[in-house]
């Protein structure tokens, strides 16, 4: 019996987009200047690579967890992340054990996991709080190529349209192809047909998208997109709203102080392999 599904539809994609767009979680970082958030992330992403001290790494990991909490990421997401990290480490350990690894290996893995984990936590805290537009403004501020920042807003705008087109073409292909009578073991015939139709659908999608891209780029041209790349005033106007406030500096200062603290603590109670 067929039933109606809400997922995998255009509406679903729009829903996902809006969810990211509004980034309604709130939290500390969403109220900060995006440039400072990116700087803050860079600090936390780089620092762990300068030490092999497990105490320090554990401290940085905890710092990451606190940041994620401040960014109001739910405990469920955080839990899933940590769980994933443990599972991954476990696999590597199993493999290492096959090659004759021992407790030394485990500790080395703990070190690696803490490091990668701390970096991931920082990125989670920072980027979950920045909606794509803010992030692209931050990138513009750091003088990243204009194409990237344009890509963000364009993708934002086109994704629902592209998905809708693809869904329609795919659906049409499916209706006009012979139905799969025998699904086969684990439905492999279905999967094969699905893959075949997906690939085939790209033929019309390529041509249709090429046509619409032409209109887009013509219109970009007429509205000064390439002009803005040369002339800096447009950039200044776009970024005029960015303000570094006392809060931004305070967050950065506190973070740096905490990192220093962690390193000091680590020096007092060093734990090496």
């Amino acid at each position: 019996m067929r039933k109606h599904h809400d997922v995998l539809s255009v509406e679903w994609v729009k829903l996902e987009l809006i969810r990211t767009a509004y980034a309604t979680r709130g939290g500390l970082f969403s109220t900060m200047d995006p440039r400072m958030v990116v700087m803050w992330y860079l600090v936390l992403a780089i620092v762990p690579w300068f030490t092999h001290n497990l105490t320090v790494l554990a401290g940085l990991f905890v710092l990451g967890c606190i940041s994620v909490g401040l960014a109001r990421v739910g405990p469920l997401l955080l839990g899933l992340f940590v769980f994933g990290l443990i599972v991954e480490t476990f696999y590597v350990f199993i493999a290492a054990w096959l090659f004759g690894g021992d407790t030394q290996t485990v500790i080395a893995l703990v070190e690696l996991t803490l490091k990668l984990g701390a970096v991931s936590l920082a990125s989670m805290a920072a980027f979950v709080s920045l909606d794509p537009e803010k992030l692209s403004d931050a990138m513009l501020a750091f003088r990243m190529p204009q194409m990237i920042t344009f890509g963000v807003s364009y993708g934002y705008r086109m994704l629902p349209i592209l998905i809708e087109q693809f869904a329609t073409v795919f659906e049409g292909y499916r209706l006009r192809s012979a139905p799969v009578e025998n699904k086969g073991f684990l439905g492999w015939r279905m999967i094969t047909q699905w893959c075949r139709l997906t690939v085939l659908s790209f033929y019309p999608i390529f041509l249709n998208t090429a046509k619409s891209v032409r209109t887009t780029v013509e219109s970009l041209e007429a509205r000064g997109f390439t002009y803005a790349a040369v002339d800096g005033r447009g950039r200044q106007i776009r970024l005029a709203y960015l303000r570094l406030t006392a809060k931004d500096w305070a967050v950065m200062a506190v973070t740096l102080a905490l990192i220093a603290g962690v390193f000091w603590f680590g020096a007092q109670f060093p734990l090496y392999r």
Binding site: E133, F150, S153, Y154, R157, T215, T216, S219, L220
Partner: peptide, 15 residues
């Protein structure tokens, strides 16, 4: 000169 296309959906580029 301003131009509005027949497929005007494709000329909208901002969110």
């Amino acid at each position: 000169v301003g131009y509005v296309y027949q497929d005007f959906h494709n000329q909208l580029v901002r969110p």
